[in-house]
Nucleic acid binder design. Sequence first.
DNA 1: GCTATCATGTTTACACTGCTAACATTAAAT
DNA 2: ATTTAATGTTAGCAGTGTAAACATGATAGC
Lengths: 204, 204
Amino acid sequence: MKSYHHGNLKQELIDCACKLCERDGYTKLSIRSLAKESGVSQTAPYRHFETKETLYASVATEGFKKLSKACHIDADKKITKKDLVKIGCNYIEFGLKNANTYDLMFGTAVGNFAEYPELLESANSTYENMRLSFSKLASDSDEVIAFKCITLWSMVHGLVGILRKVQVVGDDFEEGFGPISTASVIATNLEDHLDKVLTGLIQN
Amino acid sequence: MKSYHHGNLKQELIDCACKLCERDGYTKLSIRSLAKESGVSQTAPYRHFETKETLYASVATEGFKKLSKACHIDADKKITKKDLVKIGCNYIEFGLKNANTYDLMFGTAVGNFAEYPELLESANSTYENMRLSFSKLASDSDEVIAFKCITLWSMVHGLVGILRKVQVVGDDFEEGFGPISTASVIATNLEDHLDKVLTGLIQN
DNA sequence: GCTATCATGTTTACACTGCTAACATTAAAT
DNA sequence: ATTTAATGTTAGCAGTGTAAACATGATAGC
């Protein structure tokens, strides 16, 4: 028999939302379907999420936690350029393998991160991780470190976006534009590529 | 007196959609409100756009045409690294000044470009423009040119995305994450920055 | 000029959405 | 034990994308 109170609804909704969001994209996610999935009335989720955007923010928060983990480097050992390349590769892999969640994290679905403290915290933490790695690579000023950090982030963020839009040639798949083999860019050149860009950036 | 047939509905809908999309973001755009705006019945737009995605595709097509124009370099004169930096800066300026349209062009609102020939054509044309510029910079193989092209595109695309999310410090505005002054990155360093990255990329 | 055709418009309707207000139940605090 | 606050339900509003059936009028062939 089912009790009137669910007991763990908020977490279940978040988990379910993460799953559905990644499977179908956040636009296909509805509060009502989510409620139905959890065997609860249409409006029950509103006891835990003020608006749909609040739910989005929760999913995005989970996303940043996962991204942060994927890009984490053991803090003790010395950081090398190779480590940063690895971070970049891991970032891109995350973005491509969790494309729908990534959209939610970096799109406009959640307007202002500052309105969602947990989201802001998890996003900042991801940034702080990368910043720390750069700070352990060379003794630069805070501005230079931030600059390098934004540059690497932009590079990998851009690659995630473009690689998803670029047309695949010599494959069943055809979508987007630009007659280049995504496979060849990713598999063959990605690491070299990041290395090259980073070399130009940190010049040593 | 108003005639039964509008006469120029399709173009008017597209123009109106472009305007509203850029003003409020494509998620706020509804076919019904668009129809009302043009003084026509709710379902009239369906005579010109099979689905809402088809309308999105039209708006995105216009966007790519504008982006292509913004990144165009006179084909006759010799291309230098400086020209490519300029292209990159213009690209970023477009992305930041037309942020909502840019979302539509590079987000997931339009799933498969191949389903919309005009969109595919305009996107490919934008790519082809940039490719041509690179081909006039050095005599590289097609693969190398494509590789460089994707790299620059990724870089500027990434910057558009990240600069929009990064938190502005020392300003009224606060949104996103990362304690860095967007203003300083953009205004002070953007050109230098692109130059540095391009130097690492084309190594000459 | 007359008529058939077809592009383009309207009306109506359905299923779905986010969200609010009023009410019900039960866990937790006094 | 009683009050209170958290968490659930029901009913309903306004808005959405889209399909089906029908209306109008521009145009092409006779």
